[in-house]
């Protein structure tokens, strides 16, 4: 039971990270109807930028951990958001009215570019960092000596996710930008006729998605203490699975899907086999798409004839 509780905690933390990435997929899919294949790599870039800015801050003698974390968060969100914007500008915008598969293929190309770019710029080796946030709480001490722990990092990851999600929900439901986004989602031509700047709205979608992926990248860095250039690929597919599981286009769905994927992966690793954890995640993707293509919280689609 204690073991299970511990895995539950770990799963929720991992799921929060997946959820943050999944939001980027779901938003872009909702508006432009394409799978932003490079999104996983944006997450990886976010992790790298968090790592580098953290390293600089420490080396210039800053020691107050909350300040460091806040600056790292803001810097990585800002720069990664610019990456998201640039990718959209270079690789997707010229293809807005091209044939259907073009943006997807362009996105695959962009994903290779970003992966290889990080590899060249920062080397192929895994980059470890010493634990930045230490300590935690012992929740329960079992009779067999098994301890259920909740570390401070885990608390921070979950709290950051919840806060950002709240801000983000407010952004989409209450602001002009959010209204424009929802309008573009329904009908881009009509939105443009009514004075919505479609190009800008789509750009902002990518910017927000990338900023959230940057947060995920930073959380990943804090939690696992390492980044590498290849981590975007698998994390990206899993986050996409989360978006589909939750119902693509639905924001709460993306978060719910993220949590579920995180839990499934953790529990699978804990009770079955670590080697096959990715196989399990990918199998879930296939199974969900076959039996529940609209996801848990997605709208059913009626085929227009």
């Amino acid at each position: 039971m204690d073991y299970f509780a511990q895995q539950l905690i770990n799963g929720i933390v991992l799921g929060s990270i997946y959820g943050l990435i999944a939001i980027g997929y779901t938003m872009v899919y909702g508006i432009v109807g394409m799978i932003n294949f490079a999104h996983g790599d944006i997450f990886m870039i976010g992790g790298f930028i968090a790592l580098i800015s953290f390293l600089i801050l420490v080396s210039i003698g800053l020691t107050v951990v909350p300040v460091i974390l806040l600056i790292v968060l803001l810097v990585s969100m800002a720069i990664t958001a610019l990456y998201g914007w640039t990718v959209e500008r270079i690789a997707y915008r010229p293809l807005r009215h091209s044939f259907r598969l073009a943006p997807m293929l362009s996105a695959i190309g962009m994903s290779f570019v970003l992966t290889n770019y990080s590899q060249i710029a920062q080397g192929a080796r895994v980059k470890p960092v010493p634990p930045i946030i230490t300590g935690g709480y012992t929740l329960h001490e079992g009779s067999e000596g098994f301890v259920v722990r909740l570390s401070n990092v885990q608390i921070i990851v979950v709290i950051t996710t919840v806060v950002l999600l709240a801000i983000f929900t407010w952004l989409v439901s209450r602001t002009r930008l959010g209204r424009d986004m929802r309008a573009c989602e329904q009908d881009q031509t009509m939105a443009a006729l009514l004075g919505v700047d479609v190009d800008r709205t789509i750009s902002m979608t990518f910017v927000i998605g990338a900023a959230l992926a940057a947060v995920a990248g930073m959380m990943y860095l804090l939690y696992y203490g390492l980044v590498d250039f290849f981590m975007g690929f698998v994390a990206g597919i899993k986050a996409f699975t989360a978006a589909v599981l939750g119902g693509i286009g639905s924001l709460p769905g993306a978060m719910l899907g993220g949590l579920l994927i995180g839990l499934i992966e953790t529990l699978w690793s804990a009770y079955f086999s670590v080697e096959y954890k990715d196989v399990a995640a990918f199998s879930i993707l296939i199974v969900v798409l076959i039996f529940l293509p609209t996801g848990l919280l997605g709208r059913p689609e009626v085929e227009k004839v």
């Binding site: 091209s98 073009a102 943006p103 293929l105 695959i108 190309g109 290779f112 970003l114 992966t115 290889n116």
Partner: peptide, 12 residues
Amino acid sequence: MLVFGLAMVLLM
């Protein structure tokens, strides 16, 4: 892969 990826984008 960098060149390959860029080529794919430009091609599209």
